[in-house]
């Protein structure tokens, strides 16, 4: 059953990914990306990472994609569906580079061995619940990266405002 679910999610994610990069209409691409994110959350559930699945749906599907859709509607797309979605002479160049990278990755995966196991076994996470285990790790061991993440979000807010501000003439 787990195997069946894994293959369903994996094939759906890969198929949707290929459809998105080839989609002529960007709105279709963004909406298919929404479906892809839900399947990605399914893969996280198979990995016993319930908190990450929830964050994936809330942050990616709920916030980031809505932002993409808004910006997509702000810019005009009238001629978009008539011209080719790819840059000139770029299709085969990109294809060859992607295939070469994939071969490199596969060679790396074949020689991959896991390091030593940590303290959080599946039973322990099940006992603690995943959210609590994550929270304990973030607020004790990883408190400094957590603060830095807050700083990055602050920079994003300031940068967003600075970019959106209309330039006044002569000011």
């Amino acid at each position: 059953m787990v195997q069946f679910l894994f293959f369903y999610f994996a094939i759906a994610v890969i198929g949707l990914g290929i459809t998105i990069v080839n989609s002529r209409n960007p709105v279709h691409g963004v909406l298919l990306m929404l479906v892809l994110f839900f399947h990605m959350a399914g893969l996280y559930l198979l990995l016993n990472a319930e908190f990450l699945a929830a964050v994936q749906v809330i942050v990616y599907a709920g916030a980031i994609l809505v932002l993409y859709l808004f910006v997509l509607f702000l810019v005009t797309l009238r001629e978009e569906v008539r011209i080719s979605p790819f840059i000139e002479k770029g299709y085969w160049m990109g294809f060859v580079i992607a295939i070469a990278m994939f071969i490199t990755f596969i060679k790396g995966i074949q020689n991959f061995t896991l390091g030593e196991h940590g303290a959080y076994t599946i039973e322990k996470i099940g006992q603690l619940t995943h959210t609590k285990a994550m929270g304990e790790a973030i607020y004790t061991t990883y408190i400094l990266p957590f603060e830095v993440a807050g700083l990055i979000l602050l920079v994003a807010v300031v940068g967003g405002i600075a970019l959106a501000k209309r330039e006044r003439k002569g000011a």
Binding site: V13, I14, G17, I18, I20, V21, P26, G29, V30, Y68, V71, L72, V75, E80, I83, S84, P85, F86, I87, G90, Y91, M93, G94, F95, I97, A98, I99, M101, F102, F105
Partner: peptide, 17 residues
């Protein structure tokens, strides 16, 4: 999935894509 992303980044005409 990463290779699909690389392909899309290198070839798409639209910056949003």
């Amino acid at each position: 999935l990463f290779c699909i992303g690389v392909f899309g980044f290198l070839t798409r005409r639209n910056i949003i894509m």
